[in-house]
Design a protein around this nucleic acid. Structure first.
Lengths: 126, 126
DNA sequence: TCCCCTGTATTATGCATTATAATACAGGTA
DNA sequence: TACCTGTATTATAATGCATAATACAGGGGA
């Protein structure tokens, strides 16, 4: 697992880690059931504190994206919650992005193109 | 201007204010050139500190969404920056949302439908 | 002129979050 | 036994968020 962290970013380190794990899973680089690095290992590789990685893992666990076995470590384990809840949450985030796009003069066509391009990175669940 | 703030939200108050102003503009409730409430007025109405509203206005100003006249106050003033920069920024935010959708089992069709519904709230710029 | 309206600035306080360091512990595995 | 997991604790430090109480600069209107 290779992390690229920006220590001068306004995004907290633990969130950057969480985001990159999420992207790796969505991109198919990490598959369900696959093991994540041990928190000490990842912390050493990334040059951050053990507890910072731990915080990222705890967040992913709360989000139902990984499970943690106290003996063997963390692994990808997707629990799907209520579709309505997920859609409601994503809708609020999307609404802000769409609003930013509008006030910045991005057209509907441009937004649709961008969105479709990103969607294509989503292989359907089988 | 009516604000609905959630003081127990993890989203900072100044950000909630910024978001609601943005949504009001994108939704056509606040038009370019239109005056925003004075920071003291809005602070009193919302029951928050003057400097919290000021922080939200400063952020909106940095983002090129409003202008502030030290004499007469703040008003909507959209400066459009480089389209490439805006798209790059929005793309990163969208990427995370799309990833979350995927791992949570939302289909492409469902995402497209949600996105299109939100896009319809965008009247084209004339 | 005087008062009121703007945004802005300053100083102090309090609390939560983020991140680190250095250990220590529980418990399964080889 | 030695080593690997995650977890917990305590301390420290920097930063972010929010409030309070003033104070200031400066334009506008009565």
């Amino acid at each position: 697992m290779i992390l690229s962290l920006d220590f001068s970013s306004e995004t907290p380190i633990y969130l950057q880690i969480r985001n990159q794990v999420l992207l790796a899973i969505a991109g198919g680089k990490l598959k369900p059931g696959e093991k994540l690095p041990a928190i000490r290992t990842l912390a050493n590789e990334a040059g951050v504190n053990m507890m910072t990685v731990n915080k990222a893992y705890q967040l992913l666990k709360e989000e139902g994206i990984i499970s943690i076995d106290r003996r063997s470590g963390a692994f990808v384990s997707l629990s799907r919650d209520s579709k309505a809840d997920v859609l409601a949450r994503l809708s609020k985030e999307l609404e802000l992005i769409v609003s930013e796009a509008k006030v910045k003069g991005i057209s509907k066509a441009e937004m649709r193109e961008l969105f479709n391009r990103l969607l294509e990175g989503m292989e359907e669940e089988k």
